[in-house]
Every structure is written in structure tokens, then in C-alpha cells.
Nucleic acid binder design. Structure first.
Length: 224
DNA sequence: CTAATGATGCACT
DNA sequence: GTGCATCATTAGC
């Protein structure tokens, strides 16, 4: 692997080089990094703990399958490092990280995050008008985390590499004594032979990750 | 289990 | 342009 999981200085925005790879490489590497949202009430920082790869025009699970280039999918065809945000089921938003080169539509869906501090959690609870009892109810799910971070389509196309922009990703603490698992992606039965590809990645036994899958396998283990 | 809720993409005129 | 099935989900029975 050309890029290690820990070569970035904690707290600095992930640079363009991080995003210049296929989604399948970026998806597991995003785990442990920090998603930061600037709001009028202050910054919210949270750790990325679950992702899914949607890569290339051959992936039948991807919005860009077959090269579908429309108003919605346009940002997927741009350079890596931007946010691709769309509305799903008429009421929820999903946040994706665009990766890869220009004209190669690759994206990583952010499926679950964990607030870093009680203050971060408090702001997320404020934006979710829902009484989340368990951690997974707060931000374990793509729609939930977007609501908690006040992310909607107005941020579509925004760069994720600008420190103190509305939304960015900075390097987190390197993974230690944790294991990355992989399993098939969620709710893409329509993707035929691509539905079973193990392109979902998440931290093992993490309280903010829902939907354990019996088909999950170990992707990578991190020691001391 | 299923309703909610609206943008999207595609077939067809 | 119009019609309409579909959906990378969630909350509440």
C-alpha cells in the first residue's frame, strides 16, 4: 500500500493526495479520521466509524453506474476531495466523499460517526429533534448523522479539504487496538452481482455502528 | 412490519 | 414536456 493508515499529522486536513485513489482504497482509510462541521453554535467534531465504497461506472450500486452523468451525480465526476450529498427517501440526506481523478466517478458514503466529546454530542442532539437513547440512535446511520451535523444539499460540491470551511475532514489519531471489518453494503439489492461485494467497512464492536452482518470478515487489525 | 415524502431518472409522447 | 416507479433511510407501531 502506498499510503499508510497513519501518515498524516493529527488535526490537519486530509490533503488532496488522500483523495486521489479509488473509493475502495479510501473507504477503509477514512475510518478513524475526523469529520468536522462548522455551525453557528460552534464546531462539531466526530470520528468516522463506518463507510461504504461506491466506485466507478461498472458498479451497479453506484449512482454513476454506466456513466450516468446528471445534475445529481455531477460532483462525483469531479476531482476527489469534495462532498457529494443527495436526498434519499424524500426526507434524509446522505454524505459521500468524492475520490479518484476527474471524470472517474468514485465516492465513499459516510454511514456512521461518533462525537468526539460531550460538547460535540450535545450539539448533535440539538440538531436531531429525537431522543436518541443508544449511541447508534444518535449518529449510527447516514441519515441520522447528516441531521445531527446539519448537513444538507446546500453543501453539495463543497471541498472537504479547507480548514474551517463549512465541512472538512482532518486526520484523526491512528487506529490502535482496533479492527476494521468488512461486509456487503446495506440496502442495495438492486445492484445484482455487485450487491454482495464486501465494500462496507466499519470498526469492530463499535457502539455507533448498527446492523452487524453475519457475512462480515476481518479486513485489517491494528495492534499497539 | 411499514408509512412518510420528494427528487430523480427514464420511458414515452 | 409529462407520468410514475424507485429509492445508498428512519421512526414508530
Amino acid at each position: 500500500m502506498s499510503l499508510s493508515f497513519s501518515q498524516y499529522q493529527e488535526g490537519s486536513p486530509l490533503p488532496p493526495a488522500f483523495y486521489e485513489v479509488p473509493a475502495l482504497e479510501a473507504a477503509p482509510r477514512l475510518l478513524g479520521h475526523t469529520l468536522v462541521r462548522r455551525t453557528e453554535d460552534g464546531h462539531i467534531r466526530c470520528r468516522i466509524v463506518e463507510t461504504e465504497s461506491y466506485g466507478g461506472i461498472e458498479d451497479k450500486g453506484s449512482h454513476a453506474y454506466g456513466g450516468r452523468r446528471t445534475a445529481r451525480t455531477e460532483v462525483m465526476f469531479g476531482e476527489g476531495g469534495a462532498a457529494y450529498i443527495y436526498l434519499i427517501y424524500g426526507m434524509y440526506h446522505c454524505l459521500n466523499v468524492v475520490t479518484g481523478a476527474m471524470n472517474d466517478p468514485q465516492a465513499v458514503l459516510i454511514r456512521a460517526v461518533e462525537p468526539l466529546t460531550p460538547d460535540d454530542e450535545a450539539l448533535m442532539r440539538k440538531y436531531r429533534n429525537a431522543a436518541a437513547k443508544k449511541p447508534v440512535d444518535l449518529s449510527g446511520g447516514p441519515g441520522k448523522l447528516c441531521r445531527g451535523l446539519r448537513i444538507d444539499k446546500s453543501l453539495n460540491g463543497q471541498s472537504l479539504m479547507e480548514l474551517d470551511g463549512p465541512l472538512w475532514i482532518e486526520a484523526g489519531r491512528p487506529l490502535k487496538n482496533e479492527t476494521i471489518m468488512q461486509s456487503p453494503r446495506i440496502n442495495i439489492a438492486y445492484a445484482e452481482e455487485y450487491a454482495a461485494k464486501p465494500w462496507r467497512f466499519f470498526l469492530r464492536n463499535h457502539p455507533y455502528v448498527p446492523l452487524l452482518d453475519k457475512n462480515m470478515t476481518v479486513f485489517k487489525e491494528f495492534g499497539e
